[in-house]
Structures are given as structure tokens and as C-alpha cells.
Design a protein around this nucleic acid. Structure first.
Lengths: 182, 182
DNA sequence: CCGAGCATGTAACCTGTTACATGATTCG
DNA sequence: CGAATCATGTAACAGGTTACATGCTCGG
């Protein structure tokens, strides 16, 4: 069973607990935001496809809350497909970094452009870093016998160190190009 | 004049010297490979659009080599548009990192998957790092009165430190998850 | 009752890649 | 002369976002 890239996050999240499309979106924007995103326009069609492929199945609607919410759970075939997908070599998307492209050609704009961009990028990175650290606290505070925590912290630690390194680079760049501006 | 994202690299490169579509592609795969890419299917149509918008103009074909090569140069309006584009705040694309998504859900696959992926990623990062350093040598060895070099080295230094940091993280991860595998 | 958030879905659009078609030139 | 590379281009497709349409439910 071949698994589409845009379906993998769904299956992954459904290993946690059964969820609806809306809940999945919230979870993606919460837990996966740092390295993944998915739009409703992609999510709902994918949900239908996964259902048809029997990798997920719909739960019967809750009697108590007669909401029109559709809750899905992962099937055994789904878990199988997910495991297969996880094990295969990850493909890297063609690079497209707008900030770096602008900085690369920034000699056309002068040192001020570099200063402005790196200052702004630094601000955003700081926000990101604070968010990362808050998540880390959260994970560490929940029961440590959660086996998944180890894996989550591993990905987090990459995000934190990359962001810290980026901030450091912003500082250096800022130094170098504000001298030039004077 | 609003500049399309996929056209900006063309204008940027044409500030170096007049080039044909084919040469632009080569230059993108050479100098910009670490943060940018462009396919022919995008490049040639964009070239036509930029030409029609008078941001670039075709050079008369060389008499000596009667090749069917079409060489373009950037116009004043093109330089203007490029400067404007460089100065505007860069947008960041929605994140999509397949490796991190797999590692995040790797508790489904076990420690071996983590080990395999980080080992492989480390290999690729090492190759990248060597390439980065070779480029740095090259830039530093060309005449230092090239004003652009300062900008190029700035973007390079980010690439190098991010890659080094990534390799370091791979080592840590490898350590942690090979212990688990035993 | 009304607005915010819950909830599902679709159609139009944009961007970008892949695969293909075509032909010239250079070098061994 | 044949293969590799130079060189330009297009059509089909895949992937993804945005904007819209629709309606429910809960709290104030």
C-alpha cells in the first residue's frame, strides 16, 4: 500500500486517538506546526481517500452529542502503511528560501536591506524559540512513561538548536552590516 | 512593477551578466542550489513574460557563433523591479519536512528507523558541508575587490553553520537511539 | 438572539515538475 | 558518424492554497 505524502500526517496523528478532520487540523497546527502544515482543501479529500482505501474507518456518531462531526480511527492496514512510510527514505523537496535569495542578491539593495531583513528574521526566530521551549516544558511535564516523548523531544531539540544557531547568525550579520551602513 | 517569485532569481542572475535560459539554469544549479531551484518548464515561460514586461531584453544574436541561443540582459526597469523585490519582506513557505515528520512519528517504527534515517541524513549533510566549503574557498580566492563576495559569504556562512549544527544533532540522536536498539 | 468557533466540504486557481518534442553543435 | 551536451520550448499532470458555501452549537 503506497501512502501519499499529504496523508501520512493524518495516519500519524490517528495513532494517538480517533479524530475528526477539524481536530486533525488543530493538532497539525499545534503539534506539527514546526515542520508540517496541511490545509482543509487537502485534508478532507484525503480523509475520504484513506477511508475508501480502508486505512482509516469512520466511528459511529456519538449518541450523546448529536453533532455532525465525523470521527475516524486508524485501521490495522493503516498502521501497516504508516510503518512502511516511516521506514522509507525521506525525500527532500527542492530548496526555495526567499530570505536567502534576497540576501544573496542584496548587493543590489545595499547593507540596509540586509540589516532590515536579518533584524526582522531574528524577531521571528525568537518567537519561534520561545514557542519551542514552551512545548518542551509541556512534554517534559507530562508523564515521563509516555514512550513517545523521547521521539518528540528529539525533533524538538533539532528545532531549538537550529533556531538558536539562526539567531546567532542574525546577530553576526547584523553586526557586520550595520558597521557598513555607517 | 510587481515581481513574481519565480522570476526574481532570473533578474538577480542577469545583474551579473547577460545570459540565455540554458545558462541561467546552469547558474541556478551551481550558485543558487543551496537555497533555490528552478525547472525549465518554469524558466522559459518566465523569460518570455519578463521580456514582454520589458524587465529584460534580448541581445542580438552573435554573428560569429550562429547558434540559436537567445541571450537576455536586464533592463533599467528590471533592476528597479529587482531592487523593490529584494527590499520587501520575504514570505516564508508553509513548512514541510518529511524527515522530521517521520522522526516525530518514529515511535511507530522503533529506534532502528531513527538510527537509519539520521545516519543517512548525516551522510548527505557531510557532502553538503564539503560542497559549501569548496564554494567558500572559491569565493575567497577570487579578487577580494568583488563587492558582492561579502553578500555571498554571508549566506554561505548560514548554510555552513546550519549544516554543522545538523550534523551535530545527527550524532547526538545516533548515540541516543543506538543505545536503545541494543 | 447573535457572534464566535465548530465542522465539513468544493471549485477555482496557482505554482511547479515531469515528460516529451525538436533540433544544433561539438568532440572523439 | 554517433553520443553527449547545448538549447528552446510545450503539454499534461500533481500538489497545494484560497475563497467560498453551508450549517450547527454554545456562551453571553
Amino acid at each position: 500500500m503506497l501512502l501519499k505524502l499529504s496523508s501520512s500526517s493524518i495516519l500519524g496523528l490517528l495513532t494517538w486517538r480517533p479524530m475528526s478532520g477539524y481536530e486533525l487540523k488543530r493538532e497539525i497546527e499545534g503539534s506539527l506546526q514546526n515542520f508540517w502544515s496541511e490545509s482543509f482543501g487537502q485534508l478532507y479529500p484525503n480523509l475520504h481517500m484513506l477511508n475508501q482505501a480502508h486505512l482509516i474507518s469512520g466511528l459511529p456518531p456519538d449518541e450523546a452529542t448529536k453533532r455532525q462531526k465525523k470521527v475516524y480511527q486508524i485501521t490495522d492496514a493503516g498502521r501497516e502503511a504508516l510503518r512502511g512510510w516511516i521506514a522509507t527514505d525521506p525525500a527532500s523537496r527542492p530548496p526555495r528560501d526567499e530570505l536567502l535569495l534576497k540576501l544573496f542578491f542584496a548587493s543590489e539593495g545595499g547593507p540596509d536591506v540586509v540589516r532590515d531583513h536579518s533584524r526582522h528574521a531574528r524577531e521571528k526566530a525568537l518567537v519561534k524559540l520561545r514557542r519551542y521551549k514552551a512545548i518542551r516544558e509541556q512534554i517534559q511535564s507530562l508523564n515521563s512513561h509516555q514512550e513517545r516523548a523521547k521521539y518528540w523531544l528529539m525533533t524538538l531539540s533539532l528545532g531549538i538548536s537550529q533556531t538558536q544557531n539562526f539567531i546567532h547568525w542574525c546577530d553576526e550579520t547584523l553586526d557586520e552590516f550595520t558597521e557598513l551602513g555607517r
